[in-house]
Design a protein around this nucleic acid. Structure first.
Lengths: 204, 204
DNA sequence: ACCTGAACACCGTTCAAGT
DNA sequence: ACCTGAACACCGTTCAAGT
C-alpha cells in the first residue's frame, strides 16, 4: 500500500496517539505509535523528526488547551493564582507526561506565553526585575511537581516500623494522590504569594 | 572466565559505574555499565534486580553522602534552611540524575531521613499537622527543580523576536545555569519560609 | 509527497551451561 | 555463588524502493 491519495498520517494524529499511550501506559515508543495508527514505523519519519520532537509536540498540544482568562483587571496575587491554576490544569489530565517533559528543555511557545503573562503580573506586583525569573521558576517547579504527585501510588513514603515517627504521624491522615496534589499545590502557591508580598516590601 | 575466586562485581561497583555514566552522558544502560566494568551484560543480574533497582540505588548513594549538621539548637527557619541546603547539596554534583529520580517513587531510607528531619522542624515551627506534608512536598519540588536547572543549556527560554517583551527583559541579565539555579532555589526557599511564618500566625 | 519492508545498532532481561 | 555466551522481544532511525 504505497502513497495513498489522501495521507494516512499527520503530525496531529501522531502526537495524539503518543499522548494516548503516555496517558494509558506511562510511556510511548515509535513502534507502538505506528501500530496504534496502523502504519509502518518508518512512516512516522515523514512527519516528525525524532522521539524528542514528538515529546515537544505533546507539550505544545497539552498547553494549547489552556484557558485564557482575563487577568488584567485583577489584583496581582489573584491574577497570579489564576495563571498558576490555568498552567496546572493543563497537566492534571496528563500527569504521566511530566517525567518526559522534565527531561527536556522547553521550546514550546504556549508555555512561553504563560511565562510571559506571569512576568507581566509579577512586574505589576512590584517585584524587582532580578527576582522575576526566580519567581517564575519556583512556580514552574511547583506546577510540575504537584502534577507529578498525581502519578504517585496511593500509599507513598511508607516508612518502615516506626523509624520515622514525625513523618508517620504527618502522613497518617493524607488523602488520595489527587487530594495530596491539590493540597500541596495550594500550600506552595499561597506561601509563595505570601513570600512575594513580603519580598516586595522588604526587598530581596 | 567462569566464577573467579574473588567476585569481579559488586552492587557498589555497578551503582558507581551507572552514576558515572549518568553524570557524564546524561543516561545509562545495562550494556554500557557492563562494558565499563569489563563483564558480560548478564553478570549484572547476579547483583541487581533490574534497571529501576539501579536507579533506586543511585538515589541511595547520592543521599548517603549528605552532611548531617546539628539543627537541634537552631531556630526553626534556620534549621529548615540548613536541611534544605543539605538536601540540595546532594544533587548539585549529579543534576543529570534528577530526571531519572523524578520518574520513580522514593524507596530510599536516606531521603526518608531528610523528610523526617524536616517534619520535626516544621512541627517545632508550629505548623499545623495537616500542613506538614504539603510543606515538605513543596520543598521537595524546589530542591529537585532547582537541581534540574543545572542541566539546562546556557541560554534557556530564548523567546523569538520580541513576542514576549516582559520575559525577554527579565531574562536579559541572567547568569549561568549554576547562578540561576542558586538564585531560584534561594528565592523559593526564602519565600517558602516567609509563607510558613505567615501561615503559622494566621492559619491555613 | 508519502508510504512499505528490510535493515542496523542498541536496549533490558532470561536462561542454560560452566566452575 | 557468580560468571559467560546465546538468545529474545523490543526500541529508534535510516534507506532503497514503490507510486
Amino acid at each position: 500500500m504505497p502513497r495513498p491519495r489522501s495521507p494516512l498520517l499527520s503530525v496531529d494524529a501522531i502526537v495524539r496517539a503518543a499522548l494516548f499511550l503516555v496517558d494509558s501506559t506511562g510511556d510511548f515508543s515509535t513502534p507502538k505509535v505506528a501500530k496504534e495508527l496502523g502504519v509502518s514505523q518508518a512512516a512516522l519519519y515523514n512527519h516528525i523528526d525524532n522521539r524528542e520532537h514528538i515529546i515537544e509536540l505533546m507539550r505544545g498540544l497539552v498547553f494549547s488547551e489552556r484557558q485564557h482568562l482575563d487577568t488584567e483587571s485583577l489584583p496581582w496575587d489573584e491574577a497570579l493564582r489564576t495563571l498558576a491554576h490555568e498552567y496546572r490544569d493543563c497537566l492534571v489530565d496528563h500527569p504521566r507526561l511530566v517525567p518526559l517533559l522534565v527531561a527536556q528543555t522547553v521550546r514550546d511557545l504556549g508555555v512561553m506565553r504563560i511565562y510571559e503573562d506571569m512576568a507581566t503580573v509579577l512586574a505589576k506586583a512590584g517585584l524587582a526585575p532580578s527576582a522575576i525569573v526566580p519567581a517564575i521558576t519556583t512556580l514552574d517547579y511547583l506546577v510540575l511537581g504537584s502534577a507529578l504527585e498525581l502519578t504517585a501510588p496511593e500509599v507513598v513514603w511508607s516508612p518502615p516500623q516506626g523509624l520515622f515517627p514525625m513523618l508517620s504521624e504527618a502522613i497518617a491522615d493524607l488523602g488520595s494522590p489527587a487530594e495530596r496534589s491539590n493540597t500541596a499545590f495550594s500550600f506552595g502557591l499561597e506561601t509563595l504569594l505570601a513570600g512575594i508580598r513580603q519580598v516586595t516590601k522588604t526587598g530581596f
